[in-house]
Write a protein that binds this DNA or RNA. Structure first.
Lengths: 213, 213
DNA sequence: CATCATCTTGACCATACGGTCAGGTTAAGA
DNA sequence: TCTTAACCTGACCGTATGGTCAAGATGATG
């Protein structure tokens, strides 16, 4: 009863293999860092011979670049929720939810991103200077508007954003520490909910968007 | 007018060289990660021949272990302030100040720590499971006491601690991103003060330790 | 001053890694 | 069916890296 699979088209092969490689690469880069990752390790995890990796991605660096770019893309996309929100409770609340969900579902990506930035962003510095700067300015303007409209306290928008990034990404980047402090067990569904609630409550209370208990 | 330096004693030589090596190693490990760091790079930065490093630290891993242990030590020491504080405003406020100061003065150490944890703590897992667990339990007890005494809102102490770690360490670990968003300039004294104030205000307000603006 | 333990270092080695390539296989297209 | 372009991969190569070592220099000790 072997599965009767008709041959994949060339395009499907390409898409399939690139996907396999990128997924494996993300994991390995996250676990070992760029320097500690080896093409052989990635190849083994992807189930392909090493030479095949070099067929699709000429160098280790080009593979790494693709991984980081994909992560940056998701990173920005998570912030769409921020816009069009009537106020901080909805906007920031949803943003926290979205970023916590990323931390939960794609911890490897978050780690690769953290590693890249920690190492002075050798690959995506240009993105930081253009896209990220614009993105940040835009959200800061929204926060300022909410402040002007009296929907929250006059906090520094920049540091509020840093706090949002730091707090949500912490659950991915330091996930191992958190698991250790949780008796070497991953957070349960309920614990993830509690984490989200805690973060949202403290921050939204902290900026005066919801009343203190 | 050459300096007339009398010969260093053997003990001084050892202390001096170990210090040189450990400082250089911390920087290199922070910038390149464990895998990306090379003994040659560390040797060059320390101004010593590579073979000399292996005289004091037999392997790259043993050197790395010493670096991480030193950082963990500082990490815990910063929390002494936490104890004996009459309430969250003083205790948590001082803790935030202390950890922000570490992020400012020793960003490399913070990065090495982050990297170690992100890579599943291959070297200090036992410390996490013993010392860190105890430390965390202790501070959670203090926070619970403050809650019982009505000095702050009944937030989850665990997630409050995570938020404190995440937010303060973010200024070191993601310092490059922060600098980029600051027009490629390091934060000035005033900006560091503003950062500290923002963090303290939002968190202390968020837990109901100080009134909302 | 003589002996010893400690420190120093250039030269060397084995290994692992990123990357190459030639020769083969397979789907696409005419 | 035949040709071509895309895909596949075992074997190979140069280099960089962690680590070793033997021989010498230097401070401690009595």
């Amino acid at each position: 009863m072997t599965q009767e699979t008709r041959p994949l088209s060339k395009k499907d092969i390409r898409r399939e293999n690139e996907k396999l490689i990128l997924e494996a690469a993300e994991k390995v880069f996250a676990e070992a860092g760029f320097g500690g990752a080896t093409m052989q390790l990635i190849a083994d995890l992807a189930g392909l011979p090493k030479a095949n990796l070099h067929y699709y991605f000429p160098t280790k660096e080009s593979l790494y670049r693709r991984v980081v770019q994909a992560i940056f893309h998701d990173w920005l996309k998570a912030a769409d929720i921020f816009d069009n929100a009537p106020g901080p409770v909805e906007g920031i609340g949803a943003y926290i939810d979205a970023k916590m969900e990323i931390s939960r579902r794609h911890p490897a990506g978050s780690k690769v991103w953290a590693s890249e930035v920690m190492h002075r962003a050798p690959v995506i510095q240009d993105y930081l200077e253009t896209t990220l700067v614009e993105w940040t300015e835009g959200r800061m303007a929204i926060i300022r508007r909410w402040i002007d409209e009296g929907k929250m306290n006059p906090v520094d928008p920049r540091h509020l954003l840093y706090m949002l990034w730091a707090t949500t990404q912490h659950y991915a980047d330091f996930g191992h520490q958190i698991e250790t402090l949780n008796g070497n067990a991953p957070l349960s569904d309920a614990q993830w909910e509690a984490a989200k609630d805690s973060v949202k409550t403290i921050i939204l209370t902290g900026i005066g968007a919801i009343p203190s208990a």
